[in-house]
């Protein structure tokens, strides 16, 4: 169990990170990452939904008839998303206004259905729960990285606190969604670069050993 958890953790955070490796959930990653606060709430919402929908679907996996499994997945995911939406509206009304329709659109985030289909369908509930949680965490971390750079350059703030000590002119491009395209592309580039280099190193080692 411990080893499995470790595998699940590293796979979701790095090797198969939903955003920078699988290029899933890009729409919301572009939309909400102009401020750290919005990204964090969006990420937490997604972690909650992915974790609990994976748990539920995995617990039901031996009872769900195959031919309607996607309907059941959508139903379960939608139920959790609406719960998150209601909860944010009731307790964090300002953030709810800032996120606009994107919380409701967590339903369409491919990461959740991806985990349900690829993992929760074949694995026990607790492990599926953590798989969903870590997939959400992988998504959240990338969103926070993008938001950190966009918020500093676009607003001169971090979590709303002024960090613009140099008094530079803030970049409007970082505030509007196209700014996120550049940031995501750079992150994907860096991640692929690191993986490629590692692969080459391993190859060289193997050659050296032979």
């Amino acid at each position: 169990m411990k080893n499995e958890l470790k595998t699940v953790f590293f796979r979701n955070l790095w090797r198969e990170n939903p955003v920078i490796r699988q290029i899933l959930g890009i729409c919301s990653a572009l939309a909400v990452t102009n401020r750290m606060e919005n990204s964090l709430v969006m990420g937490l919402g997604l972690m909650f939904v992915t974790a609990f929908s994976s748990l539920t679907l995995s617990a039901l996996r031996n009872h769900i008839p195959d031919r309607i499994r996607m309907i059941v997945q959508t139903l379960v995911i939608a139920a959790y998303v609406i719960i998150v939406d209601i909860f944010i509206k009731a307790n964090l009304p300002e953030i709810s206004a800032a996120l606009g329709p994107y919380v409701g659109l967590i339903i369409t985030n491919c990461i959740i259905m991806g985990r349900a289909e690829a993992f929760a369908r074949k694995n026990p509930p607790v492990l599926s729960f953590f798989d969903g949680l870590f997939a959400g965490l992988g998504y959240t971390i990338i969103l926070m990285c993008i938001a950190l750079i966009r918020e500093i350059l676009g607003f001169g703030t971090i979590f709303g606190f002024d960090v613009n000590f140099l008094n530079f002119t803030t970049w409007t491009i970082m505030v509007v969604p196209p700014g996120a395209f550049f940031m995501i592309a750079i992150l994907i580039w860096v991640a692929s670069g690191i993986t490629d280099r590692r692969l080459k190193k391993n190859e060289n080692k193997q050659k050296g050993a032979a």
């Binding site: 039901l60 031996n62 009872h63 769900i64 008839p65 195959d66 031919r67 309607i68 309907i71 059941v72 139903l75 379960v76 139920a79 609406i82 719960i83 209601i86 909860f87 509206k89 009731a90």
Partner: peptide
């Protein structure tokens, strides 16, 4: 897994009722 039509329909109905009930509860509470 292969299951009969009746089972499929009943299963879907039960799942729908449970989750819609859950949502209705949360909605009423908030």
């Amino acid at each position: 897994m292969k299951k009969g039509y009746i089972y499929t329909i009943i299963f879907m109905a039960v799942v729908s009722i449970v989750f819609t009930g859950l949502l209705a509860g949360v909605n009423a509470a908030y």
